[in-house]
């Protein structure tokens, strides 16, 4: 145990995800030894993120204004919505520079075993966005794991009667991997989604 304020800092850092007691102690002593200006900048950034960052009223992505940068961008195609679980997934898709539509962040995936059902996600908000009939395609980009697949199944069932085209991101073999190490489910999906080589 250390003097009050140092121990307080260690305890607070220890609450962060992936930070154990030893790591918390290491970060605390790093901050103690750091330049006061650097520490002030970090403290300011922490406070600012809580004060300024909010969730986009349209898509649920993190934003610094009422709407996020993507929803404000007039060049984006608002007829296509890509549904993702978390804001982190928006960043991952944006990095590809392949998608020019808009997003909808659900805030997780349906996981009954963890007590997360459809009502705990931003599904109602998605249905409101689809209600005006302007959206022509809904791309389901939830994680390719069990919860993500079940969430996609649930959404497809809900949205299809509205006449909106519902698509799911392809899944298959990762680029740079060995075929022999691919599991049966992934390899099966890769076969299902095989494409014609147009050479």
């Amino acid at each position: 145990m250390y003097e009050g304020v140092v121990q307080n800092l260690i305890d607070e850092l220890g609450l962060l995800p992936g930070v154990g007691p030893k790591s918390a102690q290491r970060i605390a002593f790093h901050l103690l030894a750091a330049d006061p200006a650097d520490v002030k900048r970090l403290a300011h950034a922490l406070l600012e993120v809580k004060e300024k960052v909010r969730f986009c009223r349209t898509c649920g992505n993190v934003a610094s204004e009422e709407e996020c940068r993507i929803c404000r961008d007039a060049r984006r195609d608002t007829h296509v919505i890509c549904v993702v679980e978390e804001s982190k997934d928006v960043v991952a898709i944006e990095k590809t520079r392949e998608f020019r539509g808009t997003y909808h962040v659900l805030g997780g995936a349906i996981s009954p075993i963890d007590g997360v059902g459809p009502d705990d996600l931003r599904i109602r908000e998605l249905m409101t966005r689809l209600a005006d009939g302007r959206v022509t395609e809904l791309i389901l980009a939830t994680d390719p794991n069990l919860e993500g697949e079940a969430t996609a199944t649930y959404l497809a069932r809900l949205v299809k009667p509205m006449g909106v085209k519902v698509t799911r991101l392809a899944s298959g073999l990762p680029v740079g991997g060995d075929l022999e190490y691919a599991d049966e489910v992934t390899l099966g999906r890769a076969f299902e989604g095989r494409r014609l080589l147009d050479v």
Binding site: I113, N145, L146, Y181, A182, D183, E184, V185, T186
Partner: peptide, 8 residues
């Protein structure tokens, strides 16, 4: 290398 093998 585990892929989908360790999904519920």
């Amino acid at each position: 290398r585990f892929g989908a093998r360790l999904e519920p």
